[in-house]
């Protein structure tokens, strides 16, 4: 592939990363509102629903943390995509390993928020098992489960690519030594 072509692809990928960053910032801004309102409501110990508010606070806080955890991953992806534009080889094992770790943390946070969200919806099962499941797995829930699966897939792929990069780097070092 030509150098110019690679540079254009690298720029396109980084522009998309900037847009994702902006979307995540907006999402974080939207998600912080329920966290603040739950926090102010759960402070009243006389309120009989204080425990529900506390659970809501933890759930929304986990969602906020999972959105915030995207930013370090975006930074690592930025540096990876920058290397694509420079036309260097597959010598990125450290970045890929870091990306795998960050994706694993993201998966954990998303999975925890999924469990919290499901615990809020579990009483919907009372309307009968067959009709309860669709009302429990609503649009928001499905979106979060999908994101968790996607994040888990990214973890495995980044780990596998990191292993390949390590192997390629070892071969390159060996070649450099023998030449």
């Amino acid at each position: 592939m030509e150098r110019k072509e690679l540079k254009a692809i690298s720029l396109l990928l980084r522009a998309l990363l900037v847009l994702i960053g902006l979307a995540c910032l907006w999402q974080l801004h939207l998600d912080l509102y329920p966290v603040r309102s739950y926090y102010s409501m759960m402070l009243d110990p006389m309120d009989p629903a204080a425990s529900v508010y506390r659970r809501g606070f933890v759930c929304d806080l986990l969602v906020c943390l999972s959105v915030a955890a995207v930013f370090p991953g975006l930074a690592v992806l930025w540096s990876l995509f920058r290397q694509v534009g420079l036309g260097r080889g597959f010598y990125q094992q450290k970045r890929l390993r870091l990306l795998a770790w960050l994706a694993a943390v993201e998966t954990g946070l998303l999975a925890a928020s999924d469990i919290m969200m499901l615990s809020f919806r579990v009483d919907r099962l009372g309307s009968g098992f067959l009709w309860g499941i669709p009302s429990m797995l609503d649009g928001t829930m499905l979106l979060y489960i999908g994101l968790t699966l996607g994040s888990a897939a990214l973890t495995v792929v980044a780990y596998a690519l990191g292993q390949s990069a390590q192997k390629a780097a070892a071969l390159q070092d060996e070649n450099a030594l023998t030449v």
């Binding site: 692809i9 396109l12 990928l13 998309l16 994702i20 979307a23 907006w26 939207l30 694509v84």
Partner: peptide
């Protein structure tokens, strides 16, 4: 306009665009 669902689908669109480019590479 930009509520939770719109931003989520917008994010998915951007991730899908990155996936397309990476798959091409």
């Amino acid at each position: 306009r930009l509520d939770f669902y719109v931003v989520a689908i917008l994010g998915l669109t951007l991730v899908s665009a990155i996936g397309t480019t990476v798959l091409f590479l």
